[in-house]
Each structure stands twice: as C-alpha cells, then as structure tokens.
Amino acid sequence: MADFFSSGGLWRDEVLVSVTLDPEERTTISNPEPYFCLVPRVSYFPLVLPEIERYFRALLPAGTTFDATKDLPWLEVQGQPLRWQHPVGCLYDLYTAGKADVSAPLPLVLHLRKFPTATIIPMHSPEAVRAEFMQMVKEATFLRDGNIKAVNSLVKEQTEQIIAAMTNRDYALFERLTEAFRGQEPLRFPIRVHLPGTTHVQLPILAAEMPAECTLGDVMARLLPTLFPSPAPAEGSPAVVAFGAALPLSTPVGWLLRRMAYPDQFLHLAVPQLPPGAPPCPTRPRCPPSSGPPPHRPPRRG
C-alpha cells in the first residue's frame, strides 16, 4: 500500500451527491425523487450538470418557458450558490462537515432560474471548464515557480491531452504530461484553505521564509493565526481536511503538495468546522511587510 498515493489512488475516490429540485419549480404533488450520483473528487460539478439537468427537466410540465439570457442552471448548497470552480472533492469536504461517513451525500439543490451572476462564474460549456482549469494551473504554477513559462510553452495538443487525462482520471498519463511543472523546489506554496462561508484563504508564502521541514501546522499558523495560534496541534484546533482525511498538523507540506494536490496544481485544504467562538469568516491575516509582493489576487476571469 506504500504506493497508494503515487499510483493515483486518490483519483479513484468519488463522492456521493444528492440533488433535489428548487421547490419553486416543483409542480407535482409529491416531491420528485432526488438524483443520486457518484462524482469523481478530481472532477468539476459543471461537467455532471447536464446529466442532472436532463433528469429534472423531464419532470417539468410541458410549456414551461425560460429566459435564455438569465435562466441558466446552477447549484445551491446550504443556502449558498455552490462555487463550482473548485474541485468536487474539496467542496464535498467543506460542506459535509468533515464527516468521514461516506454514506453522507452532499445535499445540493438545482435551480433553473435567476443565475447568481455576482457570486459564481457561468461554466456551462466544457470549454469554459477547461479554460477555468488552465487558469488555475497557471496561477498555481506562477506561485510555485515565479513564472508560467512551463504552462505557456504548452502547445494546444498538449493542453488538450492534459485535460483529457484529468477527465478520464488517467493518473499515470497526467503525471507524465505535467512533469515539466513540478521540476524544482517551490518558490511559494500554492495552497488554498477553504472555510465555511464564501471565501478561501490564499497567501503567497515564500518557501525560503519557512522552516526547512515545513509542516502543515507552520503553514496554518501563518495563514490563519486566529484559528491556529501555534504550529503544534492543540486542544480544540479545527480539523484540516483534504480528500476526506483529517490531516495531522505534523504532516510535511512538501509531501502534501506532491501527493495530495488536485489536478489544478493547488493543494485545496478545507476547514469545515470552526470552533464555536471563532467568527464565521475570519478576517484575512495581513502579510508581514517584509514578505515582498502584495497578497496574490486571482486574475479576473471572464
């Protein structure tokens, strides 16, 4: 089992999702059966959306009309629009409250009207998903190497092969194609920490400023000093979850980046349960003035 990680065992994992229809669209007396399906952790929700949509549209009475410009389908979770530009696995970890119980599905609600343009990105075509994915790869590569030469030098065929490898979950092929990205030691850590609410925390942490054997605890203490006052595990410190596993704070960051990063090259960490006293959305910690460039903002996406 030692090579579980290096053989892409994580990519095989799937999460259970249950989808119900927006109650406002419901026309039958009884509730329609929820749609259950297994979605790969390394996939994206917009890719399974057409299948779900097809099921629920068949339930609608004939003659229901939609405004083609505004009424695009979208998903809701716990009363918020689902930020589906993040991988399925990290969303699942965030919203199933870290329950290790695999039988707990991620409860989603499908909406067919009033797309919340201000909150989420329209990603209804496979091309849009691919573009978003490559954007994330570029961002992660820039954080790690300080430049995106490795991504920019890809020809179109290579890009398509990489995306095909991701959608087919061919871990070996994907590793071979993206070898060029992961050559040297990272300059900064491409890490995102997702918190309940609408935000995620991402700071350019210079690898040189961290201890040599940098652990997850060091990084968390740096990113979320209010939740993790010290790098050492303490009583009541919230769980950090990735791929459904609560990660010990002593785990080396290098190993995590190498083994538990998503295909978009980011290490997505979820902190699903905040301690009772903590604010629901902790204020973003300020960068220390000596740490060079200002906090990296994700580039605008269209």
Binding site: M1, F4, L38, S103, A245
Partner: peptide, 20 residues
C-alpha cells in the same frame, strides 16, 4: 505516523465508495 493516519482514512473512504 501522519502518513499512516492519512492513508488509513483515505483507503477506508475509497473502499466504502466502492461498496456504494
């Protein structure tokens, strides 16, 4: 120790998914 703990959790999850 940490790797063992992660591995245990993850393999358990994968096995359960397979059964589902």
């Amino acid at each position: 120790d940490w790797e063992q703990r992660i591995l245990n959790q993850v393999t358990k999850r994968v096995a359960m998914t397979e059964s589902l």
